[in-house]
Design a protein around this nucleic acid. Structure first.
Lengths: 331, 331
DNA sequence: CAAGCTATTGAAAGCATTTTCAAATAACTT
DNA sequence: AAGTTATTTGAAAATGCTTTCAATAGCTTG
């Protein structure tokens, strides 16, 4: 029942630990014949190197920590898929942590992260505060941020320029003569929502207009639905921009039940495209953002940092693509 | 830049390693005064125990491996949330692995799992083959399976009795005089789909009828859409049962575009309830399954196995709740 | 044939903990 | 005050690997 160690292999193959270690790690100094002897012993005993012991000896764990707010959004799944695929290629493991509201949770997570001696951490969260970042930095743990523009210059980040996307969209709509544009807050993605608002504001100001139509909404579906209904009392035309698919659906349902025709009266755009945007009727116009790539690229950046190929650019901005579907009449 | 170790703390506090170790682990033999001395040294130096070294010394990593097919389904997100919440409570870490089709991938994952010396593994996958299980067993790694009825009796599992759910549903519908019932295969959840079919068959046979209406469908949305359209050429009435929300949506869209009224002509039921089932119009009737609990319970079972409180029952069957919405006219 | 290389191998130290066992100290007892 | 017991502490071994440095063996070369 006892696990077989490198000692057992050494004894079986009649060589020293050092040699076995060399064989395991593919060192090329060991002679063909001994290599085979060792290989045979390994397969005979079913030996698997103990990654923990290796981690201790090498001072690296080939594990990276991933921090996400919650695992429940569709596109986070895609991010994770991208991350893990790349991790698998480079033989890294991923330790998953979810972070909830509140500073204590952030502290606790940073604590485990440090204790578990991961080689680096990838963060996708609005909730990761400056404090946590500096702590991590002080312990010299490499960080890659996903999907939020880096605040400190020293941070690596992979992101989508949300503000730009919305700025361009609003610009076009202002061009069409549509100036009643609202941006809905998504509590669970507050930073991103703010960036959307920022983009809208920029567009209006560039056109000599002012804008102040950021609608703050408690998080859940029902309340979105209610808040939007209220909004619709004063606004029967224009454009509403939401962040997540489920929010956009709440808007659609609310419109439908208030006799507002989409897209003829009111148009709706969702920022994050998911399969649900196309599965629903009317299909929701949205920006397809490369979620999978967001994950894949950030993991790749991380591996580069760790093998210390110098990372050329600290910030990688991935592109998006706007797709007009059935909830908009302008293109 | 060098990480502070237990030695540094010992020196700072003027005690031996053993004492520091005792303080860290909350042993109650150490005297109040020395405990304080040590605590002070720890905070002063910012010492964090090295979990890797602990893992080596203790022969346990307080890490459990999680294997899932892909992270892209909404309800898997919920499962993960449940898992992680409970893991956090019991101070376990979770290492995430996604498994794709193909035996080589399964082997590779089992290999990393063994090397990384996790204390146990939780598996949610149709693709985890017998082989992998036996390998894991031979290395004496505890396993908990999620959401698939255990095949071997020695396995712990937490699941939903899908067959029963569908059997009951079909029974009711046969009672209503509806016998044109189809079950759609979901390639990515083939086992579950088969269980649904199994339940349907049972219901029909119990009523002295035969049933053979399991529709095999290539995976993606478009092909579901096409296959269902074809099905609708011969079937204008009855019930269609899908597994995932996006599949059910494909059915709805296909029906709509073929002039079939839902629920008046054709009724649609989706097995796994997600928020999208209620966000869509018509709202999709479905079974709300406790995804979060599925994760939470299996992690709890795992912790029990590891603290070896004997786990009382190997199999935990969680309950589901059928909610009739707008895609069905019977209740 | 001695000297000098090179290709292989092994011994031992190091990585950061825990834990056992014995020693030291403290606290009682008589 | 000496003996006994209980409480605290520390030394050292153990956990399973990597890696440096030295040693050995096998060649080559002058």
């Amino acid at each position: 029942m006892k696990r077989v160690t490198i000692y057992d292999v050494a004894r079986e193959a009649n060589v020293s630990l050092a040699t076995v270690s060399r064989v395991i790690n593919g060192s090329d100094v060991v002679k063909e014949a001994t290599r085979n002897k060792v290989q045979d012993a390994i397969t005979k005993l079913g030996y698997k190197p103990n990654a923990i012991a290796q981690g201790l000896a090498l001072q690296r764990t080939t594990t990276i920590g991933l921090i996400i707010p919650e695992a429940s959004f569709t596109y986070i799944g895609q991010i994770i898929n991208g991350l893990l695929d790349v991790a698998k290629i480079y033989n890294y493991n991923v330790m998953l942590h979810t972070i909830t509201e509140g500073i204590t949770d952030a502290e606790k997570i940073v604590d485990v992260i440090i204790k578990s001696r991961v080689d680096g951490v990838i963060v996708y969260s609005d909730k990761m505060m400056e404090d946590s970042i500096t702590t991590l930095n002080s312990y010299n743990i490499p960080i890659v941020m996903i999907a939020n523009k880096a605040s400190g210059e020293s941070l690596c980040s992979v992101y989508i320029d949300i503000a730009k996307a919305i700025r361009e969209l609003c610009n076009r709509y202002i061009g069409y003569g549509v100036t009643d544009i609202a941006v809905l807050e998504d509590r669970k993605n507050r930073n991103s929502s703010r960036l959307m608002a920022h983009g809208a504001k920029q567009a209006f100001e560039a056109n000599g207009l002012s804008w102040n139509n950021y609608i703050e909404i408690p998080n859940e579906y029902r309340s979105t639905y209610r808040f939007v209904r209220k909004y619709f009392e004063d606004h029967r035309h224009g454009l509403v921009i939401a962040y997540r698919d489920s929010q956009a659906m709440a808007v659609l349902n609310s419109a439908r039940e208030n006799g507002i025709a989409v897209p003829d009266d009111m148009e709706v755009v969702c920022f994050v495209d998911t399969k649900y945007n196309s599965a629903v009727r009317p299909m929701i116009s949205s920006f397809s953002i490369p979620s999978y790539d967001l994950g894949a690229v950030s993991m790749r950046v991380m591996t580069k940092m760790l093998e210390n190929d110098r990372v050329t650019d600290k910030e990688k901005c991935l592109s998006y693509l706007y797709t007009a579907r059935q909830t908009t009449k302008h293109h």
